[in-house]
Amino acid sequence: MSTLTLKGPYWVTVRQYRRTLWLVAGGVLLSLVSMVWLRYWDGQTVGTNQDNGHAVLRVAMDWAATAMMVLPLLVGAFVAGPMVARELESGTYKLALTQSVSPARWLGSKLLTAGAVIVPATLALIGVYRLGWGSVAGTWSFLWYAPDTYVSTGPVLVGQVLLALGLGALIGQLIRRTVTAMALTGLVTGLALLLVGQLRWSLMPVLTGTGPLNVGNLFPGVPASSWQGGYGLLTASGDHLPAEACWNRTKEWDVCPADLNVVGQYWEYHPSSHYWPIQLIETGIYLALAALALYAAFRVLRARHP
């Protein structure tokens, strides 16, 4: 990777981590080549008696989704440890400060360099995953709302890696111990992603459908590709009751006591058209949290190195 057009702390940062940068570029290229080959193999064997290509593609997609889910944790740990905490722990950052480089510029150059690599690489990996997803989309475990597929196919992953970048910068300064900072950043990043992920399906109002009480057809009229949320019984006054309300009284799913006044059933769902609105809203949350983490990181830096 050429560093001829870079100057000052940016040049130093690229020189320091050039092997990592080459590793990232090589990983993205290898992923692309592998996915293109798997798609080609799948296309050659589909509909034959030896449709091994599709089976291998599905396994590869499972592994790829797992790797994409772990990516933010790796980014946060690397930024917190090797990029920030290690230099603070060893004191090598002082050399940069003696070269007419302010503390803010020292940290900013590292984060900008990391971001300039991480964001394009993440977008490229999303594109690679979508290339393979085109052959398995809508099948079991590859539905659009499955947690790993949802994260791996949209801008949410970019927001997550940027949040990890900000948390890594903050925790790396607070801990100043390489291994400890890496572990703690991975933990905090994972908790943050888990908490925001719990809010995912409440970021946009669900659609509600109603119909007659028919236990043999729980969700009539709901597209098969929809994310299905809560469901239960509907009374004449419009109140919602738990799905087992009649069973608890009569031991029959579709026989209800008259006093419950049940007239049908209801169900809540997100159609596939909600994919992009939810993706963009959740991405905005991650970007806001990332901005807060970066702001706190520079505040800590200023307090310790005025």
Rank of each mutant, 00 (worst) to 15 (best):
P205V: 07
L234S: 06
S226Y: 04
L187P: 12
L218Y: 04
K94L: 12
W37C: 04
T153Q: 15
A192L: 09
L191K: 01
T5F: 13
E282Y: 00
T122A: 09
K110Y: 09
T45K: 00
Q228I: 15
V179H: 14
G76I: 06
Y17G: 02
S109A: 15
M68A: 06
T13I: 01
A303V: 01
D259A: 12
Q173W: 09
L123F: 08
T189M: 03
F78D: 11
V255F: 03
L194D: 13
N52R: 07
G27L: 11
V14Y: 15
P205C: 09
V101E: 15
A114S: 11
L301Y: 04
W227I: 02
T13A: 08
P82Y: 07
P205I: 06
S202R: 11
G232C: 04
S109R: 00
N214M: 09
V151E: 08
P205G: 10
I126E: 00
G186R: 04
G238P: 05
N261E: 10
G108E: 04
M35W: 08
T92L: 00
L280G: 09
G238V: 08
H305A: 02
P120Y: 03
G216Y: 13
T208A: 10
A121V: 00
L38Q: 00
S141T: 08
F142N: 03
A137I: 12
L74E: 01
V158K: 03
D148I: 02
L167R: 07
A181S: 12
R249C: 05
A183E: 00
S273C: 05
G134R: 13
G159E: 07
L184E: 09
R304W: 02
F298N: 06
G47S: 03
L74N: 03
P103H: 02
W276Y: 07
P72K: 04
P306W: 05
N217S: 11
L38T: 00
G138P: 09
R304F: 00
P103E: 01
L184F: 08
L234R: 11
A67W: 14
P277S: 07
P155A: 15
T283W: 05
Y129S: 04
V222E: 13
R19Y: 11
L74P: 05
Y295R: 04
W144H: 06
V151H: 08
Y150T: 01
L207H: 14
E87S: 02
L131N: 03
P82L: 05
L233I: 13
A137C: 08
T66R: 11
A169P: 05
L294N: 10
S34Y: 02
A245Y: 00
P72M: 05
